[in-house]
């Protein structure tokens, strides 16, 4: 969750006004404000607000992912990488967004975590991957991350903070490398602090639905949560995951409380459940 300084909050309010004024201006019959001083300001601001595009989102996601992949590159196991991409893409294709380039990877880190980046990059650490026993569990983990991208959870936060940085003159929008650096820093902070709890619960609910739409066990996230609640230090370090997410027991409770009868019916192991183990043992 982003916290704003009072000054930033004022600037944000100015942006909100600017955005609404600009959209009003584009309506048929809307008065032309271009000639006034305020109109000029609004047009200047609108060049920022109108910039949002899947391309900008993708670029930002890549800027944020770059240091993460620098710290933990994709695991050199092409069989597992392909497998995770097949399962990930299968689940992602159940989501609504079509303007995303889905890319999945198991990254070579012993810690236990998974992350989504704006624009469709999803990574699972080797530590978390090793905890999984079935393809249904993998689909559940990927479904949660896909849901974050589908709802633009991270991107909305980053985008808003980027606008504040523009308004405060910390970036100009013309220096691409400076913008990339700022976005990477904002992303690192977001990774360390985590999203709002409600966004995590929403990703749990949506992720279970996406996985179940794809044909997987709608209750597999519960298995993953049970494993997380029992994880021991020799299985890997899950401290970042726990610092940025609600407790596993609370996540199970919220997921269960929200489950629809249709989702409960889908709580059966999929025919693909055992595939994960065979992908594991492959060279």
């Amino acid at each position: 969750m982003m916290r704003l300084s009072p000054r930033s909050a004022v600037l944000c309010a100015a942006f909100a006004l600017a955005a609404s004024a600009v959209s009003a201006q584009s309506l048929p019959g809307g008065g032309d404000t271009r000639s006034s001083g305020l109109g000029g300001l609004l047009n200047g601001l609108s060049s920022f607000t109108q910039k949002e595009s899947p391309e900008e989102e993708a670029r930002s996601g890549e800027d944020i992912a770059a240091p993460v992949l620098g710290a933990a590159p994709p695991w050199k196991n092409s069989t597992v990488q392909r497998y995770v991409n097949l399962v990930g893409r299968r689940v992602a294709d159940q989501a609504e967004r079509r303007d995303v380039a889905w890319r999945f990877a198991v990254i070579d880190s012993p810690s236990i975590n998974a992350m989504a980046f704006p624009g469709g990059i999803v990574v699972v650490t080797r530590g978390l991957y090793a905890l999984l026993d079935t393809e249904d569990e993998l689909a559940a983990v990927l479904g949660h991350e896909i849901a974050h991208v589908n709802r633009k959870h991270q991107w909305k936060v980053i985008r808003q903070q980027k606008l504040v940085a523009l308004a405060e003159g910390r970036i100009t929008g013309k220096d691409a490398s400076k913008t990339s650096k700022l976005v990477a820093d904002l992303g690192a902070k977001l990774i360390a602090r985590g999203l709002d709890k409600s966004a995590e619960f929403e990703a749990d609910r949506d992720g279970a639905v996406l996985a179940a739409r794809a044909g997987y066990d709608s209750s597999a996230l519960i298995s993953v949560m049970q494993k997380l609640s029992r994880v021991t230090s020799d299985q890997g370090d899950a401290s970042l995951l726990f610092a940025t997410h609600p407790a596993p027991a609370q996540r199970i409770e919220q997921l269960v409380a929200a489950a629809s009868p249709e989702l409960e019916v889908a709580a059966v192991p999929s025919p693909a459940a055992a595939r994960l183990k065979s992908a594991h043992s492959a060279p």
Partner: peptide
């Protein structure tokens, strides 16, 4: 168990303090 903000960067240090690797991103 943290709900939102208020935590430092230390928890994410291992994964966010890497040298950016655009090549690894492109390889995805």
């Amino acid at each position: 168990v943290s709900t939102s903000g208020g935590r430092g960067l230390d928890n994410g240090a291992d994964l966010t303090r890497g040298t950016p690797s655009p090549a690894a991103v492109a390889a995805l």
